[in-house]
């Protein structure tokens, strides 16, 4: 029997931790994940709870207040149209984080469906599905998205779908490898012997076993999508003005920074970096636990 891909015993210490009540102590023993989670929750609170606190419209144009640097009355300054940059940063976080997270959800669902189906198929079908996946992976993502952006006007929903559709292949490959690693395990054989169907095996045994590694890759995917979305918006293909997004604000600010409005690139740039950092810290923290480091 071929031994499944190496799975250090210690990685399973994670599972009791997923039960309510032990979550806090699990986070204490994984400081990197805890820090990443904290940073991420801060950015989420900034984007969704922040607007409730400041009562300032991100769209209100104030010709008397153009290009004000950060001060007590305008904490993050104002932009070229006198709009509150704090409000624009807060509202801009919603599409940047929301689209990335929901896009990841779609990518994870599609990736799991495709990858697990492939791993559970007879070997000839598995080969066909994996070669197809290779072909899909060979397509350059950004070029593909610029192509779609030229075809349709992108709003938040279509961006979610688009980003989800371009990021699932990597997750599909991981899911398929995990299925191959686990489907010959004795407990899966035992369950088959008890008369369990493929659906039951996939749900109860395989999905549970691959949860940690999928979680890790999902956090990395969110980080990727934050960056991809920022790139698209920077190029003017993502969220369309006047709606703010961090990438769009950065793109707009890059033209204005040369005349001294440094805050218009510092804050959106910082937000994007922090969001990516937060997700990578979370993912790496879980990965460290899995590999027993």
């Amino acid at each position: 029997m071929n031994e499944p891909r190496s799975t250090p015993e210690r990685r399973w210490g994670l599972f009791p931790a997923l039960h309510a009540g032990r979550f806090a102590s699990a986070l204490r023993s994984a400081p990197l994940t805890a820090a990443g989670l904290g940073l991420f929750l801060f950015l989420v609170a900034f984007s969704w709870l922040g607007p409730l606190l400041i009562h300032t419209s991100p769209y209100a144009i104030r010709p008397a207040l153009l290009f004000r640097p950060p001060s007590w009355s305008h904490p993050l300054g104002t932009d070229d149209l006198g709009r509150s940059f704090l409000a624009r940063m807060m509202y801009g976080g919603q599409p940047s984080l929301g689209v990335a997270m929901l896009g990841t959800v779609i990518a994870v669902v599609l990736g799991l469906l495709y990858g697990m189906s492939s791993g559970l198929s007879p070997s000839w079908l598995d080969k066909v599905l994996m070669r197809t996946l290779d072909a899909i992976l060979a397509l350059p993502t950004l070029v593909l998205m610029i192509f779609f952006a030229a075809l349709v006007r992108l709003d938040a929903l279509s961006l979610i779908l688009l980003l989800g559709f371009v990021s699932w292949p990597g997750l599909a490959r991981i899911a398929r490898n995990e299925v191959l690693a686990y489907k010959q395990r004795d407990y899966v054989l035992a369950a088959r012997q008890f008369g369990a169907g493929t659906g039951y095996l996939a749900r109860t045994h395989l999905l549970r076993s691959m949860l940690p590694i999928v979680l890790v890759n999902a956090t990395f995917t969110v980080a990727d999508l934050v960056l991809t979305l920022a790139g698209l918006s920077f190029l003017g293909l993502g969220i369309q003005p006047p709606n703010p997004s961090w990438g769009g604000l950065l793109g707009n600010g890059s033209n204005l920074a040369i005349i001294g409005a440094w805050w218009l690139i510092l804050f959106p740039g910082l937000a994007i970096v922090l969001a990516i950092l937060a997700m990578n810290m979370m993912g790496q923290g879980i990965l460290n636990r899995l590999e027993g480091r």
Binding site: E9, W12, F15, A190, Q193, H205, R208
Partner: peptide, 18 residues
Amino acid sequence: AESMGAVFQNPLTALNPT
């Protein structure tokens, strides 16, 4: 399923760790 039970070789993989 109703008439047979099976035990396999490797106790490390005999049970679902999750």
